[in-house]
Design a protein around this nucleic acid. Structure first.
Lengths: 107, 107
DNA sequence: TTTTAATATTGCAATATTACGATGATATGT
DNA sequence: ACATATCATCGTAATATTGCAATATTAAAA
């Protein structure tokens, strides 16, 4: 059916899945890598860097924005944005916690 | 087009995306959480625990298996498997590295 | 050997994602 | 005001994902 049954799962599980979904495309990984390694805000040039069309990049950026990973100005001709560091560290923590919970006694 | 242009990205970027894709569904998050918290191997009962149909669970398990997160016996009537701890820690490290690379001078 | 219980596979319908051309909106420069 | 540059949105085509009923496979039990 293509429709995820989110109501069957906890908020935490759905949240992690939602974040993971954003990272589940190499273009978005590449975009995040690029932005997070910049010394300043991003204005343009992502289309050239990544190599996908401008509408496609715009859509990917929007997905990233949706989980709150970008901050800055999003109006006008030239954008100016960067990683929201606080949110970034929050997500880092989310993944850290997920991977930390594991028992050892196993086959 | 629905077709990700993987050839435009690095192996690392594609790998991270592939792993994230597995975590990008709450059922698979729930399954992983459950298995990783068990004291012993899993045999059955996932269908009851998660609440999706048996074929659906089977498919989700297969996605998890594909990225090497499960080890154990996968033949016969009763399976017996658990988290592959080595691979688990490898993925943990992958995400850790991804989230560690961030510059501070920003807007 | 037949039955039974557990898991896998197949086939399909519904929905989601990816990508881009065309177009629209917005701000800056001339 | 007009052109230009930059980014967003719309529409659409191709492909992927999700979920389950039906069926197949497998190994152990009777």
């Amino acid at each position: 059916m293509g429709l995820t049954k989110t109501y069957m799962f906890t908020t935490k599980q759905n949240d992690l899945a939602k974040i993971a979904k954003v990272l589940a495309h190499p273009a978005r990984v590449a975009i995040l890598e690029y932005i997070s390694k910049q010394d300043a805000c991003i204005c343009t040039d992502l289309v050239d860097i990544i190599g996908l069309s401008q509408p496609t990049i715009s859509q990917h950026l929007n997905e990233i924005k949706k989980i709150g990973l970008l901050k800055g100005t999003f109006e006008g001709k030239n954008l100016c944005y960067c990683i929201d560091q606080e949110r970034w560290e929050e997500l880092q923590q989310t993944f850290h916690l997920f991977f930390s919970n594991i028992n050892r006694n196993c086959c």
